[in-house]
Write a protein that binds this DNA or RNA. Sequence first.
DNA 1: TATGCTACTTAACAGTGTTAACCTTGTGTG
DNA 2: CACACAAGGTTAACACTGTTAAGTAGCATA
Lengths: 198, 198
Amino acid sequence: MSLRKEILKVGKRMLLDEGISNISMRKIAGEIDVSATSIYLHFRNKNHLIYTLIEESVEELNRLIRDIANTDRDPLAKMESIARTYVAFGLDRPQEYEVIFMLHPEEIPRYPKKKFRKAREGYELLAEVIREGVDKGEMKEENPLKAAYAIWAQLHGIVSVVVNRRLDTRISVNEFINHAIAHLIRGIQINSHPQVTI
Amino acid sequence: MSLRKEILKVGKRMLLDEGISNISMRKIAGEIDVSATSIYLHFRNKNHLIYTLIEESVEELNRLIRDIANTDRDPLAKMESIARTYVAFGLDRPQEYEVIFMLHPEEIPRYPKKKFRKAREGYELLAEVIREGVDKGEMKEENPLKAAYAIWAQLHGIVSVVVNRRLDTRISVNEFINHAIAHLIRGIQINSHPQVTI
DNA sequence: TATGCTACTTAACAGTGTTAACCTTGTGTG
DNA sequence: CACACAAGGTTAACACTGTTAAGTAGCATA
């Protein structure tokens, strides 16, 4: 196995086991029995290594969502399924989730635009489901992309509150998720637009 | 001025100017012209210092929300106002916001419970507004506290998406916020509950 | 055989949080 | 007045961190 692949393997394991704040170049290198500076022959710096580490996690999440978006269930059901899948991913794999959605991209200014676009694929897929819902008369929405971002924000909020332990102990996590997703669906469903004065 | 207060003053300025990841004990101490270890005579460690730093920010945000909650406007208007205030706070003061709502609390296991309760005051206030809305027939909600957390999650998501630069450049920040808050209000408003099958 | 490249190493820089041990200064007490 | 003691600082050190510069084996080619 090439050193590059070995670095990625050990790095990924460390990310999952110990979290982003407990990863270090020296620890990764030490586990492979190589000097820490060798990593710099294969990755520009730590940030690039970590972004490479989670690249396939991003693709995995996208694939999960794409598979739901491409079924022929009705749009509202798809949206709920996407929402649950997203939240489940965030809760199952908080370490990767944190890197994917909580890190500031200005920390890696040279990150290729192509990869940023990949990270945005989920929004596009959700927007497509909303367009479909509007066409089929299940949803009301003038700007599906904007709505997709609003819903995404909501999902991110749900994950954050749970992962960062901001939820009141009186409330069960599952009940909270069900409630929040129901709330989310209500926000876009048709018949739910009385006179709103914003 | 006592050294403790001076540490807090300089620390706060550094937090606002340079962000949490660019604060260091030595830098704070250096600016006051004192040794770094002196800080440990006044704060248990760096985490405790930082949490003390943002304590008054938490109180400020609570006060803003409390002032809205205590007016006699109708509950829906109050909720929108609280939502806008929360988002504005997060965008105006991202460095403090990050510490308040994005840091993992397990990093300070000895943090007094009283202070955690203070950080939760916002949820309680929002829950109270929802209860009021239900009583006045403006909102429909079985569990106001749970709903308050769902809405809070949504607000946190809105702030996160913008602050972490995850918003598509085709979408203006203001439009997005307006949209997301409208979406949020729709989720709890009465007449917006057709047959949802979750 | 000599050159040059590839993939690595060692040493070092400049920083980090934190602890242990020491010292100075002001105050209260015998 | 002399002594003890505590408060509030200090210096030195430990064990880390990311990153760069310079040096070095081993191998392929001219």
